[in-house]
Design a binder for these strands. Structure first.
Lengths: 220, 220
DNA sequence: TGACATTAGTATCTACATGATACTAATTGG
DNA sequence: CCAATTAGTATCATGTAGATACTAATGTCA
């Protein structure tokens, strides 16, 4: 049996620590990324550093709120990387859809126009958001208290980046008993008016799905 | 519209950075945690620090390999936290089952006996491992080239922490065409001999499951 | 030697989830 | 009034998951 040194480093590498925040918002069935202009020619993602004694989560929340000037529906750590003598912690957040003309938000597909490497960060953040969507009721925080099922589905489609089957979506929603209809209907220009629903927070169901062997990525 | 300061911290908080590694191994249907004795009374998880210029992943791999004195089947970053003026990055790893009498490994349930806070790290690492299992072929790296389906199922059960339905497990495995039978059979003491199988790496299937509304955790 | 325990592996049935298709319903804009 | 548009439902076929119960092949032990 090989020797096993008890690796107990008393002191680690000294670095400066920074936080990058990718803020995503579903908007018109697509994902928008918060990347405001920082000077004449460049956009950048929100960045900051934790203060002494502050947790990473608190710092990221502060940075995110300062950036969008409002509340953030969801914020979670995605990963950390070393760049030279700096450690950069990536957070991803979800925000309610911005106003249509807001120049600080750009379409997810145009993330190339932000600095090099931003594309990768946005991709990681988007993947993380898709996982939350499957595991938490985060979508309901991105909508007003009363919403139509089409709006809810649009949020899902924006974050997942694919269209969903309408009937299946509603069936799954109904069997989960997650929403209750209100007596209101909303007419949105043309077409039949849509009924408004409210989110009903529920105790988690003890669902145990079977094992899945249809993983998506390569065999590493 | 609120003002949006372009938060561009030129220099972040200065911290020392350390890496904690939770190494897990399926053993007899349970999960074991690598936590060797560091002195007369205490056990501890492997710890270390990245060297200058080294990536976190490389450093974690080095620390993990040095700890168990062998290869690590899977290693992935779980999260980062600030503790005073230190940043600690948690990695979780999976290792093939250790020898039965190996004192450095303890049952996952007895993680309390390791230092305070270790329990939480082990829980996070275990949760991460469960997610990899669902998304990557990591289980096959924890078995020899030829294995029985019962062994494979035992690996899944150890990591997921629950028993699985035998017939369902095999059906899913067969339809995924992930394994091929060999012509060998192995007799393991009593009972009918089991056929040996090999892993067949496959191109990922483009499986798009429907949306799930049966999340497990609390509504935050 | 012949039950019996033990492990491997399969068959069948039910329940449910999913997605395709096609339909009905209610509105706006000509 | 009619077409376009959006909301919402019904039906059907397929696939998946779990329960149950079975067969198959080995070792153990009386």
């Amino acid at each position: 049996m090989p020797s096993r040194p008890a690796t107990r480093a008393r002191t680690g590498l000294r670095v400066t620590i920074n936080i990058d925040v990718v803020l995503l918002a579903p908007s018109g069935g697509r994902l928008a990324v918060f990347a405001p202009q920082v000077d004449r020619a460049r956009r950048a993602l929100p960045t900051g550093a934790p203060r002494s004694g502050e947790s990473l989560e608190t710092a990221a929340s502060r940075i995110a709120r300062a950036a969008v000037g409002g509340s953030v529906a969801w914020l979670e750590q995605v990963g950390t990387r070393l760049e030279g003598d700096a450690a950069r912690v990536l957070f991803a957040g979800l925000v309610v859809a911005p106003d249509a003309g807001d120049e600080a938000w750009i379409a997810r597909e145009r993330t190339n126009t932000v600095g090099a490497g931003a594309r990768r960060l946005v991709d990681e953040a988007t993947a993380a958001a898709g996982i939350w969507l499957d595991r938490t009721p985060v979508a309901f925080r991105l909508l007003p208290g009363a919403f139509t099922l089409s709006e809810l589905q649009e949020v899902y489609e924006a974050i997942l980046g694919r269209t969903l089957h309408k009937a299946s979506f509603r069936r799954a929603l109904q069997s989960a008993r997650l929403v209750t209809p209100t007596r209101e209907w909303r007419s949105e220009g043309r077409g039949r008016p849509a009924q408004l629903y409210r989110f009903v927070p529920r105790a988690p169901k003890a669902s145990r799905r079977g094992v899945r062997f249809d993983w998506l990525s390569r065999a590493p």
